[in-house]
Simulated scan of single mutants.
Amino acid sequence: MTLCAIPPLAIIVERLPHIFPDGTEHRNYVVREMAARTIYVMFYAGAVEGGDEWIRPSQVTDMNDEQAAKTDEDSRRAWIANSMSTKKIRPPDAWYAANSREPVRDETIRTGFIPCRAIIERSGVPTTSSKPKYALNAGFAELFAPALTGDALDSAITAWQAAHLSKAAMSRLRLMKQGATAAKDAVSVTFPNGEIRSLKPGPSSVIARAVIEVFAPRFLKQPTVLWLSESGNKVVARDEELANALGLKIDASKALPDIILVDLGADPGGTDMLVVFTEVVASDGPINRERKVALTTMALEAGFDERHLAFLTAYLDRSGQPFRKSISELAWGSYAWCASEPEHIMELWAGNARKLSDGAFE
């Protein structure tokens, strides 16, 4: 059987970031140079689903530019035979060091491509076996056809993503796309009471909307928005009536958080009340130790009870730079939440030590 056609490496490099956009878990593993070269070697060896050709990670590390440029059938067949031989000749200018096969196997293939179902694994081959066992998903391979361009390429990528990425992955991608769109369009937010407010364009507004529309009803019993502001200290919503009813004083001249949520809980009298100070982080500004102390002091002066305070930092996605940049700054005793994974919340536990075996985390 004739080996499959090989797309230029440049096309693979160019298209990977579009197939796996921001929001893709472990994105770096599937868009970096090593990922593109791994795919190229799979094409070179004819390792595409539907055939009976497979590769092993060492073939990626053994490839070099001179060999990669020889795309005729005889050259490819000769290379496959040599690369699988126990007496193989490894070129001195190989793409990677011989011991780099672990990153190819563990990061690029197993952690990156296989969970995305872009690469398939040959069944019946033991984990410890040196036999070749990896090949490209057929639909994924089609995305690199040079003749596929423009709207047709975009449609093909979207269809492949919908068919092969998990629901959680698709949810993250949709949210990241919304964040990009929000850079131009105003963001409409529906409050728990049904009231609708408009926020200015930008990723911060997308996160704020997610906090109010998704986080609040998911994690609070009876949520309401006490305060909502935008950058530049623009007050979007301020519930004076609720604040007065609860005996709380909101001083707009102080450095208030982006959002103040109030959970009235199951007790209309307020003894079960929880006040959630929320900072929205699209670039910087998490609730760090200093910010938590300042907000706590302000809350106590305003009439809040410390037992009923909670502190939340909200992000778009934990794979993004804002989260990675600020995670080490988050205050103990606070929470972190990402709009792209709305069913999960992170707690920076600051109480007494708990053992995993005591069931406290169940």
Rank of each mutant, 00 (worst) to 15 (best):
A266F: 11
F219H: 08
D239L: 01
A336R: 00
H308P: 01
D74V: 02
S123M: 13
Q222R: 12
T86V: 11
F304V: 11
Q178W: 14
A94P: 08
N137L: 08
L246E: 02
S100D: 10
D305R: 08
K200Y: 05
V275A: 02
S328L: 03
V41K: 01
E213Y: 02
T278N: 06
H18L: 13
G265K: 04
E341G: 03
A163S: 13
A145K: 03
A147N: 06
L16F: 03
V211F: 04
T86K: 15
P192Q: 09
F361D: 10
M1V: 04
L9C: 05
F311A: 01
D272Q: 15
W349G: 11
E306L: 09
E53K: 13
L136D: 04
K167V: 14
P91V: 04
S85L: 11
G139E: 03
S83A: 15
N137D: 15
L264C: 12
P91H: 05
A216M: 05
C116Y: 12
E362P: 01
D284Y: 09
G285A: 13
L165R: 12
R37V: 10
W79A: 08
S253H: 13
E306C: 06
R354P: 06
Y44F: 15
D258E: 10
T111K: 15
G270S: 09
R37M: 09
W227S: 08
S283F: 05
I327N: 14
K249I: 12
A141W: 01
W160H: 04
F144K: 01
Q321I: 14
S334A: 05
L300E: 08
G320R: 11
I12Y: 09
A135M: 00
K131H: 14
T190A: 14
R172G: 13
A216V: 04
Y44I: 06
A252N: 03
E49Y: 05
L300K: 10
T108S: 12
K221Y: 11
A159P: 02
F277A: 12
D154C: 07
V41I: 09
N233W: 10
N288G: 12
W95N: 10
F20A: 07
P342N: 11
A216T: 02
I259P: 01
S188F: 02
S334W: 03
V262Q: 03
A353K: 10
K355P: 10
